[in-house]
Design a protein around this nucleic acid. Structure first.
Lengths: 235, 235
DNA sequence: GTGGCCGTATGACAAATGTCATAACAAGGC
DNA sequence: GCCTTGTTATGACATTTGTCATACGGCCAC
């Protein structure tokens, strides 16, 4: 348990009302991590949120092949794990100290108590911001998914999850090759070649505007990628 | 001005208290966009926030070379422009309808009025979530910055802005080549070759752990990239 | 119809990057 | 000293992707 002074020294917790301080102080603690130590790991259930006091923490995923991708690095003053806590979801990646790091932890109960009495419109805005952060996290994974074919497949799977709420086996892509290439950061010719290959091999099918693909095959193409499986739908 | 029924049909605005409805209804309107029409453009000052009712909207940037990169696509039920409005900042990219699209607009005054009476701790949490979204937006730009050299330079510039608050001319990179390669989604050999080239040409300098680079030269390398200039510091 | 426009398709070649092998170098433990 | 370990460095070659040129096909206005 930290003192009130230490807590109010943190930018994020400056100038709060006394009721907030009371609950926050009771649930606050400080941790020290050596370089390389894990703050939390993928799949773990959050028990609080963190604020970097000193040092830095990377959030990353490692493939079975051994290669790693870093989604983001967090520096002093920035909060970590807030979205997973607010969304009541397990951590989507592992957090590791990049150097000897000091971190403030606010446990779940204390953190959530600061939201008491907040109206529904504001809570819905917060939920929406969290969803946006998770979509962007996934988008970052898409862009690092490897070669262009994997990136296209990842983008298509995301689109499928966001537009089709049923358990269909095919995903309809209403984007032109041009628009797809602007999504994955590749040249249009490269995208055309890949989609043509898919169509030739029966993996995709022409459509009036765009094309449609088989979900299973897309999943196969991106197997062993950094992107998370699904974007949770709205509550 | 929309009716209360139309408003409460939108998932985001279901089950709110009557006070919220009162202010929201007065500031709500609906727009229709033809495919290709712009909802807002880069640099414009927000006057409200949007919720997609039907269709889809892409958020993108176009370089002087003519090539375009799509940061994200927004689908029905998702909100757009909320972060810029809450942060009181101009739009960082252009929003264009991908198909004929119907959108609900809540003007600034009505939207902000739903936050009245919210305590400081919650407002600070919202601010932090918005900062996170802006950092991720930039991260997405980094990953689409072009060849590996540009991606490395973008990442280094971001790190510089987040770790050094003074107007220094050099940026100190405390990451190993390995860690850098995991940030840009490239092989370690590629990163080593590029940084070695920088050191040979006097653009970078060896350091105990990592290296340091000249800011101006990094900016030159990424000229004409999709990434935004700066991440605004905390208030 | 025909002509123009846009999106798609395909080939040939250049450039960037991945892959694999090997070596140099520094730091730390014995 | 020596050995181990981890990081950086470099070469050779395969693969992917970009670049440029050209052509095909559908669609719409006239």
């Amino acid at each position: 348990m930290l003192s009130l002074k230490e807590l109010s020294d943190v930018e994020r917790f400056k100038e709060l009302n006394s009721k907030c301080y009371k609950s926050l102080v009771s649930g606050a603690s400080a941790l020290s991590l050596k370089r390389g130590a894990e703050l939390f790991s993928e799949g773990e259930t959050p028990t609080g949120m963190f604020i970097i006091l000193k040092g830095s923490v990377k959030v990353s995923k490692t493939l079975t092949s051994g290669s790693e991708f870093v989604f983001d690095i967090f520096y002093p003053g920035e909060s970590l794990g807030e979205v997973s806590l607010l969304s009541e979801q397990d951590y989507p990646a592992v957090a590791t100290a990049l150097e000897d790091t000091r971190i403030l932890k606010i446990n779940k109960k204390a953190y959530l108590s600061t939201f008491e009495g907040t109206n529904q419109a504001v809570m819905k805005a917060i939920k929406e911001l969290c969803l946006r952060i998770k979509r962007q996290h996934r988008r970052i994974g898409e862009l690092s998914a490897g070669d262009v074919e994997k990136r296209i497949a990842s983008v298509i799977l995301s689109i499928g999850e966001r537009t089709q709420h049923s358990n269909t086996k095919t995903i309809s892509v209403n984007l032109s090759r041009q628009e797809l290439s602007a999504m994955v950061g590749a040249r249009i010719e490269t995208v055309i070649r890949i989609v043509s290959k898919w169509i030739d091999s029966g993996l995709a099918e022409k459509k009036t505007r765009g094309f449609k693909v088989k979900k299973e095959e897309m999943l196969f193409i991106i197997k062993d990628c950094y992107i998370s499986k699904a974007i949770p739908s709205k509550t």
